[in-house]
Nucleic acid binder design. Structure first.
Lengths: 194, 194
DNA sequence: ATCGTGATGACACGGCATGTCATCACGGTA
DNA sequence: TACCGTGATGACATGCCGTGTCATCACGAT
């Protein structure tokens, strides 16, 4: 029998999510979490930089994943096909089929401003990775930044509509709809300034 | 002579900005700020919800301003002219001529992750206001959201380039450049999925 | 059997943020 | 002049947040 049960991190995460569900994120304190997990407060902060990070575990891999996805695309791909392909892949592999979980998570994140800010940083970090990857493909700096930010916008807007829907349409349909809408909005002729 | 000098809020802000510049945001404590301002710690938190808010004073008016700008546009304006006009107005009235100040502020915000997150929330709050205003103009929900997010993207990307430039080109030139770049990127024909 | 490594406990500490009540200036009113 | 309501501030207490530091113990390698 070992001095410590070997799953400290898992116990902390489980205890934290239980308490967040029972009494809300803000009302939950780290001492409460560690008491339920059978650990000390100090140990919590060895595994998570702060209370919010429990809900963002495993996020660190996302920038690298985004980079790889951009870098591995065929060299002939123009910017537009690049982002449509990447967004489609992300939608199918990371979101489709998890709607119920994502709805629950969105509810918790919305309940606390601090969590909302953390979620925004996640988006910003991924955007920076995509921007860097696009520049490595040879895109001009501004094009790369616009491409990354616009991809995030399309995914974000489509995701909200997908979560809010009554029916059961797949996420990629909302993505196509968003892209079509944005393209037509920006394609109005004769409206260029000057 | 009154018991309290009447400019508590201004003294707090001045003391805070001085200390942030002298020793950095993270290294500055609220007690230090209030001591320099000649007030108590408790009084600081009566004026600012937390230490970061000193750098975001006056932000509360931005959503209403954005709403007004959208609502006051001529009813005939299509989405594209709407955002180009609004962005041009924002660029000229709130940014042009303040490049040095904005560079200093960006430096402070970049020095601390917490400040970066707060800045992202500012952008999100304005986006929500613009989305709501666009919906009140009768735009479909998804179009409104895309329009707001894309406007923020254009302004954000142009702003960074404007701040980073060596020369002295006006911000609206970077805005035009960003819009042109985005439109051409999204206008590639034959790249529509399916 | 010994030692290094790594995770955890235990303790201390300062800053953060809030609740509560007393205090004082100011303006209005009689 | 006297009184009173209002609002800002001071003073005090409290609990959580997050980090530094050192001791302790299990485990694996040698």
């Amino acid at each position: 029998m070992s001095r410590w049960r070997p799953d400290a991190r898992e116990r902390l995460e489980r205890a934290a999510l239980e308490l967040f569900a029972e009494q809300g994120f803000a009302a939950t304190t780290v001492p409460q979490i560690t008491e339920r997990a059978g650990l000390t407060t100090r140990t919590f902060f060895r595994h998570y930089a702060d209370k919010r990070e429990v809900l963002f575990a495993g996020e660190a891999e996302l920038p690298a994943m985004a980079r790889r996805m951009i870098a591995d695309a065929p060299p002939s791909a123009d910017p537009l096909t690049l982002i449509t392909g990447a967004l489609r892949a992300v939608a199918d592999t990371r979101f489709e089929g998890r709607r119920a979980d994502l709805l629950r998570r969105r509810e918790i994140v919305r309940s606390d401003p601090g969590l909302g800010e953390r979620e925004l940083r996640k988006r910003a970090v991924i955007c920076e990775a995509v921007t860097a990857a696009c520049r490595e493909r040879g895109f001009p700096a501004m094009t790369a930044a616009l491409l990354a930010e616009t991809s995030a916008t399309l995914l974000f807007v489509a995701l909200q509509a997908w979560l809010d829907q009554d029916g059961d349409r797949p996420l990629h349909e909302f993505l196509d709809e968003a892209l079509t809408s944005l393209r037509s909005t920006l394609s109005v002729t004769g409206a260029v300034p000057h």
